[in-house]
Design a protein around this nucleic acid. Structure first.
Lengths: 202, 202
DNA sequence: TGCCTTACTGACTCATTGGTCAGTAAGTAT
DNA sequence: ATACTTACTGACCAATGAGTCAGTAAGGCA
């Protein structure tokens, strides 16, 4: 008669809880987020959350991994597929990718990593292996290709792919701290890439 | 007979407590730091700390202000005093200043701002007025001087002094997240400044 | 030497929150 | 229908840590 008070949906719960958690973490950060709030957001009791995730930390790690993994593949895949010259690739797909980052979930992840890194060394390891080192490796490879086919000269930039990320990081941090005071992040990143290309062009 | 269990040192206590707090915050961040630990570190009881600082937040703000204020004056003062050409100033004093930042207390402040900004809007305002906007203003002024006396051409960089900070921010964030995995921050910053100058030179 | 002000102590309160678990009811098989 | 499994609930527990305050003693002054 009365409709059921809840449905059993073993398959979907973990995903739904993880999504709720990501939203909550994005708003208030890890520590300030209460497990109970995540549960409520996911339309579930606290007890159930603990059935699927052993601790709050487990949940945190699962969430980060879930967001991070797909993103990286995107970049490396487009890089591998592309037949463009190094410069064309940088001005095209890479620039687009970089400009998207500050507004994407990636920026939430960065914020969480900065705040929580000291307390979660294993998460840092994961992030390093699956994101940072792979991303930087791909960039380095791209630069070497450019040098190999005579587009670029040898320069310190080859050893410092972090230079490509610098303005993105700047934009992300700016967004976190000065949320309201606007900064034209697209222009910042574009100008920066322009600078790099002018600098390394053969 | 027995020597006194404590000394009364009304004058020095606040300073000492603030220093202890900075050290504690630097190690564990704001939330993870217990007021009692700060007190112990300062060689003082928790009760006394609360005599000088109304709440943990008050303490936090006082600490940030204490670290931040002197640093900024340093930059603007050297800029005003200098008779160097714009380029010489950038390659000399400014570069030195920028390279020092990642290892300085400034980087601790940045980390704390990133983690706590959403919860402390008034602190963000203070930081904006006393650090960010003044620092960026000084940089913008420097660039304009360079344009005025024919050293530099007009370029988008004039509107984006954040470009100078980008590699510094990158280095700071790198240091926070990947403390151990080394990055040659000096080289990163130097190369970057090199790039900018090549780009804007008339 | 004794008195008085107040810097200082530390045991206490109380709100918060991560984590548990005995019980409930949804769905399934017979 | 009835029995049975287990996804799910929510009241509860225990630990933690910010903030308080009644009391103590340092040190200056008469």
């Amino acid at each position: 008669m009365g409709r059921p008070r809840y449905q059993r949906r073993k398959e979907d719960r973990p995903q739904e809880i993880a999504e709720a958690a990501f939203a909550a973490f994005a708003e208030k950060g890890f520590t300030a987020t209460k497990v109970e709030d995540v549960a409520r957001r996911a339309g579930v009791s606290k007890g159930l959350l603990y059935l699927y995730f052993k601790t709050k930390e487990e949940l945190f790690k699962a969430v980060i991994r879930g967001v991070v993994t797909p993103r990286v593949d995107e970049l490396t895949r487009t890089l591998d597929d592309s037949e463009l010259s190094a410069e064309a690739f940088i001005r095209g797909p890479l620039l687009t990718f970089l400009k998207r980052l500050p507004g994407s979930p990636a920026s939430v992840v960065i914020r969480l990593m900065i705040s929580e890194a000291p307390k979660h060394p294993d998460l840092v390891d994961y992030y390093w292996e699956n994101v940072a080192s792979r991303g930087l490796g791909a960039l380095r490879q791209l630069l070497e290709r450019g040098v190999a086919n005579g587009e670029f000269r040898e320069s310190a930039v080859n050893e410092l792919p972090q230079l490509f990320i610098a303005p993105v990081m700047m934009s992300i941090v700016w967004g976190i701290v000065f949320a309201d005071r606007s900064l034209d992040t697209d222009k910042l990143i574009e100008t920066h890439v322009d600078m790099i290309l002018a600098y390394i062009r053969a």
